[in-house]
């Protein structure tokens, strides 16, 4: 049995023919759509490396079956920057050295983008730490990650204030 789904991935509408309902969103992105920026760290929702946005919300793509996502809007790390202009969260991660090996980084960044849009953490370091605790970093760049998320939150708030002013 084959399943035909339509997805918007980083702004591009795509039709995906799935010969197998077992394919997770993570494996679809990585093995079939050539979007390898999203990483597999545990495949069980325990590390956050595979975090992407589905309809604007951060989720673990390893625990999401592709076949269930017909019509969904997916944003991955590849779709975050605006051409050569980095998203404020990406820029802040570089500036604050919020990574070392870089493997968990796409998931950290997508999680941070999701966290910021959820709007519950603000610039409170403790809330940011809690909100980012679903993303493990074995290099343990947590200090820089927290600083980067707070900094990006601030910058994004300033930008949106300027826009609305």
């Amino acid at each position: 049995m084959s399943y035909s789904i339509s997805l918007t991935v980083n702004g591009d509408q795509r039709r995906v023919e799935l010969d197998d309902p077992r394919v997770t969103l993570l494996d679809l992105l990585r093995e079939r759509l050539d979007l390898t920026g999203t990483k597999k760290g545990c495949d069980r929702g325990q590390c956050g490396a595979c975090t992407v946005l589905v309809d604007g919300r951060r989720v673990n793509s390893c625990l999401s079956l592709a076949v269930t996502l017909d019509g969904a809007d997916i944003t991955t790390i590849e779709g975050l920057a605006d051409g050569d202009t980095l998203h404020p969260v990406q820029a802040a991660f570089i500036e604050h050295d919020g990574f070392q090996c870089g493997y968990c980084t796409p998931g950290q960044i997508m999680s941070a983008v999701g966290l910021i849009s959820e709007g519950h953490a603000g610039e409170d370091p403790e809330r940011v730490r809690e909100g980012m605790s679903g993303n493990l970093c074995r290099c343990a760049a947590y200090h820089g990650i927290t600083e980067a998320v707070i900094d990006a939150t601030r910058r994004m708030a300033e930008t949106s204030e300027r826009k609305s002013a």
């Binding site: 951060r58 989720v59 625990l63 999701g114 679903g134």
Partner: peptide, 9 residues
């Protein structure tokens, strides 16, 4: 419980 990502799903 769990993490922000898991609670979203």
């Amino acid at each position: 419980g769990a993490s922000g990502q898991l609670r979203n799903a």
